[in-house]
Design a protein around this nucleic acid. Structure first.
Lengths: 226, 226
DNA sequence: GGCGTGGAGGTTGTCGACAATGAGTTCAGC
DNA sequence: GCTGAACTCATTGTCGACAACCTCCACGCC
């Protein structure tokens, strides 16, 4: 809500892509909303060429859709796509969990257990937002511990495409009580240094996310035009 | 020098990206070679703006590297990165193999068995190039049968980054005799309609590729600037 | 002789304007 | 009243030129 405000200074360079990325992720632009180059140019205080470059970049990241001579719009990811993305996350994060399990320091283990304890507290006190934050903290921790930049980069991009569905899922009632034990199992396997168990636990968790996504109603329709 | 030849007509649109992609994949440009916008502009008969857009696009695909005010160059992927990429392929193609196993028609199965038989013939007659072609045909077949566009797109991009290493690996003596039974195992599991076995077989195969890549010498030095 | 300084060349970044394309709208004809 | 075509408008695609920047090289100074 605060990322798309006007800027006084001309944007130095590829900054436009970052700003636009944040704005889309932050919900400043609705799915399927048109992204007119001239408007964005004024909004971000950048040249139209810079906006154009940012649009091209975000297109190959899957956040915007561009059709010849018809302009760009925020790409709306359907539930089916969200499932696909989560399936990919499942195997990718499984790989990272396995690699991370063999590389954790004692400090890392302590940090993981701390996250686990905080998660239990958050669920116990019904703090959905805090739990959601700890959730992404856990996944980020695994990603960074694994030392696999290729998978890490892909995951980061996929996360960008999925934030909306991710958010909707997190607000689903009863969701924390099913995901909490899965998260704890992941942490346990990681701390035990067992790569196979860690991968398996991560996959179980994300498979459950896949099923939860499939169960959820189609949600905000993806086809509307603005 | 098949893909990068001069063109008479101005390139219509995002065609430049495709042409440049092919040229890099085809080896017309060496790793770390500078990509000067003006030169490419003349070479492809397109405006500099079009070249620029293509460069941005290929950058986020991981084929070129761009640094502020210093221009673009063909990205050289190190052996370590090739290993990472193959690890990602391992889990992604494993996922696709599992999904494909549950969706194959009788025609598909026949086609798969045919590929397997051709592979055996190629290896028996020492036809390395033919075997290599059948190899990518198999992987492509799995990718398309799985009906998972997200994973499929990621794999296609990763393949683009890895062609060079892939090629060096294929020419390694003794490599076919180890990969052939793995390929046959994949085909068998797919035809049996067993998703777990198919995923496992695919992972075993690509894990072996990872190990082969690690064994191979560092090859053309990739990382250093200059 | 080594090191810092200045200049020259080349390449990218940016801008403004014009042409081309597509969509929506209005108007005539049936 | 409805259909079809032409027109208008908004928006993107393309181009050329200029400015900013980096690199390399030569020169002078310590």
């Amino acid at each position: 809500m605060s990322s798309a405000e006007r800027r006084d200074t001309t944007a130095p360079a590829g900054t436009v892509a970052d700003a636009l990325r944040d704005a889309i992720a932050g919900g400043d632009f609705a799915p399927n909303q048109r992204l007119v180059e001239a408007d964005l140019s004024e909004q971000f205080g950048a040249s139209r060429a810079a906006v154009r470059a940012a649009l091209v970049e975000l297109t190959s990241e899957g956040l915007v859709e561009r059709v010849q001579n018809r302009g760009a719009r925020v790409r709306a990811v359907s539930v089916e796509e969200a499932v696909e993305i989560t399936e990919v996350r499942m195997v990718l994060e499984g790989l990272l969990a396995a690699k991370a399990a063999t590389r954790l320091s004692d400090d890392d283990r302590a940090r993981l257990r701390q996250i686990g304890a905080s998660m239990q507290d958050a669920v116990a006190s019904g703090d959905l937002l805090g739990y959601s934050g700890l959730n992404s903290e856990l996944h980020t921790f695994v990603r960074e511990s694994a030392d696999q930049r290729t998978a890490g980069l892909l995951l980061e991009r996929l996360r960008g495409q999925n934030v909306r569905h991710q958010f909707r899922l997190a607000m689903q009632p009863g969701r924390p009580s099913v995901s909490l034990p899965q998260h704890l199992a992941i942490i346990e396997a990681l701390c035990a240094g067992d790569p196979d168990a860690a991968e398996q636990a991560m996959r179980v968790h994300l498979q459950s996310v896949v099923e939860a996504l499939s169960r959820v109603d189609p949600g905000p329709r993806a086809g509307r035009r603005g």
